[in-house]
């Protein structure tokens, strides 16, 4: 019905957070350039880059899911844009958003959390092997 709205809303929030984090990273490093490298001075992946992974998954997934909803006639080009709202099935729609929609957002965020853990372990190992070499 409209489950894609939940991860879509999360995408808006995480994009704003990414902007703020990117600005803070730039201020901390004293750079004026708009394009920051994915790695920081310690050779670790910047947190803003890691947030970018979540943004890509959330925006991409929501956009493709929104297209699927258009395909099935659940999203329409005229006001109120959602068939469920037009047909007075708002309660069903909210029910689906709070179950499937929230589960989608949680799963994507959990997978991103897993990616953070893996990248952190790789960075630690890489730092340890560099220390052992020197």
């Amino acid at each position: 019905m409209a489950c894609f709205i939940v991860p879509g809303t999360e995408a808006i929030v995480t994009t704003i957070v990414t902007g703020v984090v990117k600005k803070k990273e730039k201020e901390a490093e004293g750079k004026t350039s708009t394009e920051t490298a994915p790695l920081n001075e310690n050779g670790k992946v910047r947190f803003s880059t890691k947030l970018g992974w979540l943004n890509n998954m959330l925006w991409g997934g929501s956009a493709l899911l929104a297209f699927e909803h258009v395909w099935h006639g659940e999203v329409i080009p005229t006001f109120p844009f959602l068939t469920a709202v037009k047909n007075g099935e708002v309660a069903d729609m909210l029910g689906e958003m709070s179950t499937a929609g929230v589960a989608m957002a949680l799963l994507v965020t959990a997978v991103w959390g897993g990616m953070l853990v893996v990248s952190s372990v790789i960075e630690k190992r890489s730092a340890e092997s560099k220390e052992a070499e020197s």
Binding site: P7, W53, N56, G61, A100, A103, M104
Partner: peptide
């Protein structure tokens, strides 16, 4: 290509939830 792969993975995870339901 990283952006494209993450986009498809995001959509796959969302449809996986749809499939489970």
């Amino acid at each position: 290509l990283g952006m494209l792969s993450l986009m498809f993975w995001g959509a796959s995870l969302m449809w996986l939830i749809d499939a489970v339901f």
